[in-house]
Amino acid sequence: MKSLKAKYGSDFVLTMAPETFFVQLGYQFYGSGASGGQDPRSGAYLPVIHALRDDLTLLHVQDYNSGPIMGLDNQFHTMGNADFHVAMTDMLLSGFPVAGDTNNVFPALDPSQVAIGLPASANAGNGHTTPGDVTKALNCLTKKSDCGGYEPHGSWPALRGLMAWSINWDGFNGGEFSKNFDTYYGR
Rank of each mutant, 00 (worst) to 15 (best):
D182G: 03
K7F: 04
L92A: 09
S42E: 01
L56K: 00
D63F: 09
F76N: 11
R53E: 00
D110T: 00
W165C: 02
G154H: 07
N139F: 05
T183I: 12
H85K: 13
G9V: 06
N123A: 15
V105P: 08
V13K: 04
A51F: 02
Y184H: 09
S155A: 02
Y8S: 06
N65T: 15
Q38C: 11
S42G: 03
T78Q: 14
F96S: 08
N139W: 06
M1F: 01
M79E: 15
T20H: 03
F21C: 11
V98R: 10
R187I: 01
S42I: 03
A137P: 10
F29S: 07
G127A: 13
A87N: 12
M163L: 13
S94T: 10
P152R: 03
L159Y: 05
F177S: 09
I116T: 02
V98M: 08
A158L: 10
D182W: 04
Q75C: 04
T89A: 07
Y150E: 10
L56C: 00
A137Y: 05
P111Q: 09
R187N: 05
F22N: 03
T142Y: 09
C140H: 06
G36A: 11
Q113P: 05
G117M: 05
G95H: 14
L92Y: 03
G100L: 03
A137C: 05
N126H: 13
D55Y: 00
L25D: 14
R41L: 12
Y27T: 00
A6R: 04
L25V: 11
T183N: 08
I167G: 05
G37Q: 13
G125R: 15
L162E: 00
W169A: 12
L159W: 04
V98C: 08
M70P: 12
S121N: 11
P111E: 07
Y184M: 10
D83H: 06
L93F: 07
S10L: 01
N168I: 14
M163A: 10
W156F: 07
M70R: 11
R187S: 04
A6D: 14
M1Y: 01
I167C: 05
P40L: 08
V98D: 06
T130N: 09
E151F: 05
A17C: 06
I167H: 07
